[in-house]
Amino acid sequence: MKIKKFKERIIESLLFICAVSSIFITLSIVVVLSYETFGFFKEISIVEFLTGTVWTPLFEPPKFGILPLVTGTLLTTFIALLVALPLGLMSAVYLSEYAPHRLRETVKPILELLAAVPTVVYGYFALLFLTPILQKFLTELSGFNALSPGIIIGIMIIPYVSSVSEDAMRAVPMHIREGSYAMGATKFQTAFKVIIPSAFSGIAAAFLIGISRAVGETMVVAIAAGMMPNFTINPYEPVQTLTAYIVQVSLGDVPHGSIEYKTIFAAGMVLFMMTLIFNIIGFWLRKKIREAY
């Protein structure tokens, strides 16, 4: 009996260690990023880093202003959201409120495949399929640009937006829905006047997941946006995002401990902070709305 109890304790401890390991991942992310970023700021002033508009760490004379990478990231993200938010939301409304059961069950797994396609394949698609097509209509569009990868990222994140929003809408209790139908409302009126407001917190969470994905997306922009840290908000021009810069440096041969090596951690830190902010906003929003209801 004692041995049995002992065995139980051992197993529980092992499982606990595995569960706690996830906290160590987060801690090591923070430690690794902070350690190298700290080393970076020993050499480069934080003011130059945060306010400079030229980013040329690999050239002479090196300049370390992160803003072009931040605007590049925000620009592609913004374009992606213009595509993903309306399409994702409309599709969620359709699947949750209009589509017959069988159709929904068939379409959903296929839609989720959109998120499963390797991003490098999307990069190929953006550079060699979408950009040439867009250039036929937009003559001033350069071969590398923010527009085409932005659109592709948008399509890529539709499933995140739509499936989380749809879950939220379907979680709205049936008697609320019936209350609206009983007043003579159509599906459209019920969806937009009652279901979307009821599911608002879930939809907001879905949007934030989408934003966070778009900000962190790497390969599509690394391939199709052109690796040029332009300080611009013109979607026709080539740009570089935080993620694409990290890839660019990693592809080359950068000595461990050099300032170039540290720049990717500084860029990674900015990226991590940006996604963290979106996550916190999402958390706060959900809490606030939960209180309101």
Binding site: V20, S28, I29, F265
Partner: peptide
């Protein structure tokens, strides 16, 4: 509180961009 933190943490980790994991692995 421990399981609570683990839970929030896992949800958060799922939202960390994949390239940040790359940086972690590079350092670690």
């Amino acid at each position: 509180w421990i399981t609570n933190i683990i839970e929030i943490n896992i949800a958060n980790l799922a939202g960390v961009p994949s390239i940040v994991y790359g940086l972690l692995a590079l350092g670690l």
